[in-house]
Design a protein around this nucleic acid. Structure first.
Lengths: 201, 201
DNA sequence: CGAAAATTTGACATGACTCAACTGGAGTGG
DNA sequence: CCACTCCAGTTGAGTCATGTCAAATTTTCG
């Protein structure tokens, strides 16, 4: 049995949210996306490498992060089922990435190479549209995050993260969430214990 | 003389960076984008209104900001010549916006309505591609900003802003830059004076 | 079960905010 | 051309938010 077809059918379902795909388009997805299993703590991108693939997460969960000069990790994003991940800047420029993309859970992914994605864009312009819409949605999310970063305290950002991404919050260690919020794990721990005492009162 | 054609020619030049346009496409741009003059301190979007237009800035400069419950402004972005501005979230959902978009300088803009933009996407798929690329680039920029927000001090973010957007920094009052960076104007002033004494030594 | 990782806690240090007072231009009107 | 106002920017004192480091505790997973 060809597992790729199973995984790809999830990708096809995903695209149907936006626009129905015809048979030729479905065929191209099956042909151009390669399935891969990734173990927990394994990388699909490491700092210094060029990001070669645009990745669709079928099952599992990843984090993309940067490591600064002091060796501290800063989580830029988490992605789980039916979501996309790539370091776009490295992917399009073909320059070494500053990021790591690491599996937080054992995961199944579908990957497409840059040349194949460009082929898709040129020959099936529906994908230009799909990726325009996907990117616009991610842009809005990111804009929201920036707004919170410049206007809210760590406590407010934490509560907002819990409310917005409950499916992620329950799967992630707090230290990872702290890194995403831009605070230290110690400080997040203090926030959490102060929330507990607020709840009681 | 039709000034719209002059302004639109700048828009056409802008699109040429990505892909050349044929005559029909140029004609559609001229037909669907409306030129407008905006005076300093005037708004093209106010909180509570639906964002009706996707706006291309021909000359001048705008800021998009949110006003929180305490009445404090938080600058989400600045845009100047040959750049785009809209509250995408309100534009696509047609729900009231939480943002203001205000001219910082007397400006000339070109605006397109949602229905006309969708018409463009459907009938000239090159624009799906152009806007996919534009949004991808803005996404990368925003991702960079998030990374700085969660990993750097106010001083580092200020220096990085000066280096990355010199054409904006020279035109903006410091209080506006402080709001963009997520710090108070007083604190930015202290950062600036500490940088001066560092320079001397 | 045991080792390693994650979380909590406390003392202290620093970044950043608040508020209020002061300074120094950039208009504006006489 | 001067006096006046107004607003952005600066400065200082006190405070709050968050970071640092180290140690204790709990949880996770092999």
């Amino acid at each position: 049995m060809d597992l790729t077809i199973l995984a790809t059918s999830q990708l096809i379902e995903y695209f149907k949210q936006y626009f129905p795909l015809d048979e030729k388009e479905r065929y191209e997805l099956i042909r151009l996306f390669a399935e891969k299993q990734v173990k927990r703590r394994h990388y699909i991108l490491q700092q210094g490498d060029v990001c070669q693939y645009y990745t669709f997460v079928v099952t599992g969960c990843f984090k993309m992060y940067h490591v600064d000069q002091k060796g501290v990790e800063h989580n830029l994003q988490f992605v789980a089922e039916s979501d996309w991940i790539a370091d776009l800047s490295s992917f399009y420029s073909e320059k070494p990435s500053l990021m790591y993309i690491e599996a937080i859970e054992p995961s199944t992914i579908l990957q497409i190479k840059k040349a194949d994605l460009l082929y898709l864009f040129i020959n099936h312009h529906k994908f230009d549209r799909n990726f325009r819409i996907i990117t616009e949605q991610k842009y809005m999310e990111l804009q929201n995050r920036v707004l919170e970063n410049i206007s809210s305290t760590g406590e407010q950002r934490y509560q907002s993260f819990l409310a917005r991404y409950p499916h992620l919050a329950s799967r992630l260690p707090n230290s990872q969430i702290a890194s995403y919020l831009g605070i230290t794990p110690e400080f997040l721990s203090k926030i959490r214990s102060s929330l507990v005492s607020k709840d009681k009162s």
